[in-house]
Simulated scan of single mutants.
Amino acid sequence: MTPETNGEKDFPWWLLAAGGIGLYLGWRIWRDALYAQIFSAVAQGVEVTLFVTAVAFSSACVIGLALAVMSLSRSLVLRQVARFYIEVIRGIPILILLIYIAFVFTPALVVAANTVLDPLGFEPLRTRDINFMWRAIIALTIGYSAFIAEVFRAGIQSVDLGQIEAAEALGLNRWQRFRLIVLPQAIRIILPPLGNDFIAMIKDSSLVSVLGVSDISQIGKVTAAGNFRYFETYNIVAYIYLFMTIGLSLALRRLERRLRSRQMEES
């Protein structure tokens, strides 16, 4: 039994240490002109990083929920299609998926679209018309939707079967049972792992720099190549990522405690 489950809490020495490092780097950014200049440059990529993460994660959640429902469907075809997608996509590294979507799937999609648009008299599309940022968003969406689908599936299956049968006895159809009974209870269970996936996507979004997308990592790489101050530049890059991920992690832990206490009150 861990101290936390036993009603005790360990003092967060790790947070104190991380906070000390963060305060030191913050002081350097405030007092050191070089650190301040690098921080000002790298911080311009925060908006792109958060935009890519938010759009890709939201889209992945929608697709993941659809895949989870398909994998639990009574239809053998839907179950097999969902399982095929999930297993194949989970087996491909995110970096390879990014490159494949950017340089293989997108050109093929443009060619397929032009075969439809040309006979209709529309101006043909060009591969370069599709921004690399959106190619990266599509790749992250596809990659994470497979993992999120498993999170949703586990959450849905954790709902007590007796409650579903009771709702069916009351005359609720399948959609009503899912919307009113299953999904609200499943959300409480899947919120923590979904939060972890969101934090992981913030870190994996750094991979979009291989496509030249101006996120935190790409701007850091360009800045370091220009001033040759790799130590200071990547200190700032790591500082910004840690600020976002640790902040979200602490918020997620607080949410978990609130959900746990509410569940104990209801039980």
Rank of each mutant, 00 (worst) to 15 (best):
M1N: 11
T5I: 13
N6V: 14
G7H: 04
G7L: 05
G7R: 01
E8L: 10
E8D: 13
W14L: 10
A17M: 12
G20M: 12
Y24I: 14
Y24F: 12
L25G: 03
I29Y: 00
I29S: 04
R31P: 03
R31Y: 10
R31E: 10
D32F: 04
A33S: 11
A33G: 03
A33E: 11
A33D: 06
Y35E: 04
A36Q: 12
Q37L: 02
A41G: 14
V42H: 07
V46P: 01
V48D: 00
T49Q: 00
L50A: 00
F51V: 02
F51D: 00
A54D: 01
A54H: 00
A54I: 13
A54V: 14
F57Q: 10
F57H: 04
A60M: 08
G64P: 07
A66L: 13
V69D: 10
S73K: 08
R74K: 07
R74E: 11
S75T: 08
S75V: 11
L76N: 10
L76Q: 14
L78Y: 06
R79P: 10
Q80N: 15
V81N: 10
F84G: 02
F84I: 04
F84L: 12
Y85L: 03
I86A: 00
I86V: 09
V88S: 04
I89D: 01
I89M: 06
R90E: 00
G91I: 14
I96E: 05
A102P: 06
F105R: 06
L109A: 15
A112C: 06
A113N: 10
A113E: 12
T115E: 14
P119H: 00
L120R: 03
L120D: 14
F122I: 07
E123D: 15
P124R: 15
L125G: 00
L125A: 00
N131V: 03
F132I: 02
F132G: 08
F132S: 12
W134D: 02
A136T: 10
I137Q: 05
L140C: 10
T141K: 01
T141Y: 03
Y144L: 07
S145K: 00
A149T: 00
A149I: 04
E150T: 03
V151K: 04
R153K: 13
A154R: 02
I156F: 14
V159M: 09
D160W: 05
G162M: 06
G162L: 03
Q163A: 09
A166V: 15
A167F: 14
E168V: 03
A169T: 05
L170K: 12
G171V: 05
G171S: 04
L172K: 15
L172T: 11
R174P: 05
W175D: 09
Q176D: 04
R177P: 04
F178L: 15
A186S: 06
I187S: 01
I190D: 01
I190G: 00
L191S: 02
P192N: 11
P192H: 11
P193Y: 15
G195V: 12
F198W: 03
A200C: 09
V213R: 01
V213M: 06
V213C: 07
S214C: 02
D215G: 05
I216W: 01
G220R: 03
T223Q: 08
A224N: 07
N227F: 01
N227M: 05
R229H: 15
N235T: 15
N235F: 11
N235G: 14
I236R: 12
V237L: 07
I240F: 06
I240A: 03
Y241K: 01
T245R: 10
T245K: 11
G247H: 04
S249H: 06
L250S: 05
L259H: 09
S261C: 09
Q263K: 13
